[in-house]
Nucleic acid binder design. Structure first.
Length: 466
RNA sequence: GUCCCCAUCGUCUAGCCUGGCCUAGGACACCGGCCUUUCACGCCGGCGACAGGGGUUCGAAUCCCCUUGGGGACGCCA
């Protein structure tokens, strides 16, 4: 027996790992790492209708992408059905559970009746005294304690107390023989010796019900920590309406996992004025005690800013490797690693995501032609001689030496006694097809002699023809 | 509707527990300026909040109560 911290993340594979779930997982993981405890992953797939193996795997992938590694699991609740049933039987034998024959329609009526009378729409317990046994269409319900108070000390919310009369005789075993969430979560957390149940705010109301089950079963009640929700910009529960909510959707949009971790951790948690954290710092600094009690609004702009921060400061070789996927997705020919890294270095200050790099740096990956209006505006005949000389000078220069390339321009500028400004935009348009781009010399060095000269000559041809 | 929870700039938050150092600090966004071959980056500056009302106190963003506002839960989902 040890008192080591054991936390868990228990998603249900009825959807992808979303922002909210990821943050909960992150907090659980951080707390385990911070305390030197264990982090367990458990898949809650007792809803056979809606759960799927594919979704389970997607969740695992998302966890891995975020770097949230687990020490035990993944365990699947569907592998433990007999275990849960044995507990149901125990409750039945103890008289703390009973068979119920009420149909879904009966239940609906009971609820509507209660609500219309201004009461909480809970099950009225009409089958409690019937002494029913198993039968088709029947479920097992928990005989919840009546009267009194159930309370607990939440690590985040503080003291929470609920009147037992508010609580339902909830279903433990469905008519199809599958156990339900409130039962399985209790049994597994107990069997897995979870010390700290860190989960979403939306489970606060379930907690007293679960505590009653722990008590009925004579199991130790863990410590609870309910983390506040993440809301959308209109302060309602975050959903697709607010934009992408799936973790992996952000990966596909060119976000970095460290940016997501850093962004999410700062929702309802902070450490003074610090905004940027390395994983090591987080493990060192994170504590549930510092998690706030109020909900946070997901702010895409700040997330983008953080992503840009990591794009700007990340290792360029790694970024180049990540960029490769995005190049392939566009069906562009994949350049070599050195070229890709140069692109990253050229564009990183002005692109906030990996996907941005592809858009903004399109001219690095494919042949481009400036729109007609830009050609007309910038490729003017008066620039003919100047451009001619730029091409000639560059032609005779060694491109492995940036110094020489810059010198070539200096000599052209001196010959015509003009400012660089005079030819910068025309050259930019010739090289990139746009008026906005990275620095000219960076582009030229990355593109290389052949491409640079080819594109400048094409502009020169235009100047001559006009 | 009933129950539970929450409440500092538009947003994320520091400060609140252990009242005075708060004419409330930082960050994102926004607006100016500087830098400059474009755009960015960077730097400098600006805008901007203690929900309201009562208490307690010499003194309240900080403690208490009420109101209001918001969120969540009320399922044979998790």
């Amino acid at each position: 027996m040890s008192t080591d911290v054991r936390t868990r993340f228990a998603p249900s594979p009825t959807g992808y790992l979303h922002i909210g779930g990821a943050r909960t997982a992150l907090f659980s993981w951080l707390y385990a790492r911070h305390t030197g405890g264990k982090f367990i992953l458990r898949i809650e797939d007792t809803d056979a209708q809606r759960s799927s193996q594919e979704l389970s795997e997607e969740i695992l992938k998302a966890m891995q992408w975020l770097g949230l590694d687990w020490d035990e699991g993944p365990f699947y609740q569907s592998d433990n059905i007999e275990l849960y049933k044995s507990y149901v039987n125990k409750l039945l034998e103890q008289g703390q559970a009973y068979w119920c024959e009420c149909s879904p329609e009966d239940l609906k009526n009971i609820r509507e009746q209660a609500q219309s009378e201004g009461r909480k729409p809970k099950y009225d317990g009409s089958c409690r005294k019937k002494g029913l046994g198993p039968g088709p269409g029947r479920v097992v319900r928990f005989a919840a304690p009546q009267g009194g108070l159930t309370s607990f000390e939440d690590l985040i919310k503080g003291h929470i107390a609920v009147d037992n009369d508010e609580l339902d005789d909830l279903v433990l075993l469905r008519s199809d023989g599958m156990p339900t969430y409130n039962l399985t979560v209790v049994i597994d957390d107990a069997e897995m010796n979870i010390t700290h149940v860190i989960r979403g705010d939306d489970h606060v109301n379930n907690t007293p019900k679960q505590i009653q089950i722990y008590q009925a079963l004579g199991l130790d009640v863990p410590i609870f920590a309910h983390v506040p929700m993440i809301l959308g910009s209109d302060k309602t529960r975050l959903s697709k309406r607010h934009g992408a909510t799936s973790v992996m959707a952000y990966k596909d949009m060119g976000y970095l996992p460290e940016a997501m971790v850093n962004y999410l951790v700062r929702l309802s948690w902070s450490h003074g004025d610090q905004e940027i954290f390395t994983p090591e710092e987080l493990i060192d600094l994170f504590d549930i005690k510092d998690v706030g009690r109020s909900a946070a609004v997901f702010n895409p702009e700040k997330f983008l800013w953080l992503n840009h921060h990591y794009i700007k400061n990340g290792d360029s070789k790694r970024l180049a490797a990540l960029l490769k996927d995005f190049v392939e997705k566009q069906d562009y020919p994949v350049p070599d690693d050195v070229y890709l890294e140069q692109v990253v270095i050229d564009v990183r200050e002005r692109t906030k995501t990996l996907a941005d790099m592809i858009d903004f740096g399109e001219f690095y990956f494919r042949e481009i032609e400036a729109p007609a209006e830009l050609q007309l505006k910038f490729f003017t005949p008066e620039l003919k001689e100047i451009m001619q000389m730029v091409v000639e000078k560059l032609f005779s220069v060694d491109f492995s030496d940036k110094e020489q390339v810059e010198q070539a321009f200096v000599s052209v500028l001196e010959s015509f006694d003009i400012k660089f400004k005079k030819i910068a935009q025309p050259i930019r348009v010739a090289l990139t097809g746009k008026t906005v781009s990275p620095g000219l010399f960076e582009i030229i060095m990355t593109l290389g002699k052949d491409t640079t000269l080819r594109r400048l000559r094409r502009a020169l041809e235009y100047m001559k023809e006009v």
